[in-house]
Computed example of a mutant assay.
Amino acid sequence: MTTVRPVREVREFIRAALVQPVARDHTESDAAFHRRRLVALVTLLVGALVLGFALRIRPGDPLFYAATLGLAGVWGAGALASGPLHLGRAHTRAGGEDARPVVQSLTLGALLLLLFLAGAAVVAHVPVLRDPVQHLLDHARLGSLAVVAVLTAVNGVAEELYFRGALYSAVGRRHAVAVTTVVYALTTAGAGIPLLVLAAALLGLVTALQRRVTGGILGPVITHLTWSLGMLFLLPPVLSTGR
């Protein structure tokens, strides 16, 4: 009979998902690398401006839908224009490296979601932290939840294509995790919501580590979507407990 050791299982999962890189050979010429950097920089500047504009639109204003869709277009188009992107590979339980990072990413996304919801249960009783987040969530409450959910998913994919795809590759192998995490968090600072910046930093760190391990964007995309859609539907009722 096989003995299950929870601590060891968790340690091995973290090592496989966030620590030990999978072998790959994603190389490009110096010219292609410099071109990617230029495209990534221009995309970042335009995307940051559009994001700042979108986050300041009043809840219920239909302009929010157009702005967020346009933002997804900026991130996605910039990522695809920067050069080739890869899906990535993950470690298997048997020790191989030939699997797509699907189960790992769903698990990481769910764990992040649980962590944030636990934190939200505390924030719900601190009005100065809770109210700005609820104002942001009013876009779903006062508008169409279905449309906001679709836009959340589309933007999640586009953000990962850019930040953990194009920008990560443009930074180079050294410091890519730190740089992309900081930049991703700073792009949300214009909203003036400290907890949004914190959320972006934590999500950005986890997905950047996934990118380093898997060598691709599939894992980060799945983790991001699991977390963001879960937060969209589950965060409002948790925050409402503090009222």
Rank of each mutant, 00 (worst) to 15 (best):
V238Q: 01
R173A: 09
E97C: 00
V197G: 03
F233G: 06
G219F: 05
P127W: 13
H135W: 08
A199M: 10
V197L: 08
V171P: 06
V197W: 13
H135Y: 10
R8K: 14
L195H: 12
V19T: 02
V171C: 11
P6Y: 12
T27I: 13
G156S: 06
L196T: 08
G192M: 04
L239F: 01
D61T: 00
G143E: 07
E12V: 01
R211T: 08
G95P: 07
E159M: 03
I57Y: 11
H34C: 02
T188A: 11
R212D: 01
V157K: 05
L209D: 01
V206M: 02
L108Q: 01
V123H: 12
A31L: 08
V122M: 12
V128P: 06
P237N: 13
V197N: 10
G88T: 01
M231S: 07
Q134N: 12
L205T: 14
A94N: 15
F64L: 08
A66N: 05
P236K: 14
G78Y: 05
T180K: 00
H139A: 06
Y162E: 05
V154S: 13
V150T: 12
R173D: 14
A23Q: 13
G172D: 03
I57E: 06
Q210M: 11
V171L: 05
A208S: 14
L218D: 03
A16K: 15
P127R: 09
I193K: 10
P237H: 15
L202P: 03
L41T: 12
A110C: 06
Q104C: 00
F233W: 15
V128F: 15
A72E: 06
T181R: 08
G76D: 11
N155T: 01
L161V: 07
T226I: 04
R56I: 00
L142W: 00
V154T: 12
G219R: 00
H91G: 03
L186A: 15
F116E: 01
T207H: 02
H26A: 14
T2G: 02
I217Y: 04
D138I: 03
V238D: 12
L71E: 10
R243S: 04
T3I: 12
A81W: 05
E28S: 15
I193E: 13
W227M: 14
V182Q: 09
A118H: 04
A77D: 04
P236L: 09
G76K: 05
L198I: 14
V171Q: 07
R211F: 05
G204K: 03
P236Q: 07
Y65C: 06
L142G: 01
V46D: 03
A121R: 12
H224P: 00
P194A: 07
P6T: 05
P127S: 12
G70Q: 03
L129V: 04
A146N: 06
L113G: 04
Y168S: 02
S169T: 04
Y184S: 15
V22I: 02
R164L: 07
L85V: 03
L63E: 13
L41C: 05
L235H: 02
L71Y: 14
S29N: 10
E12S: 13
T226K: 07
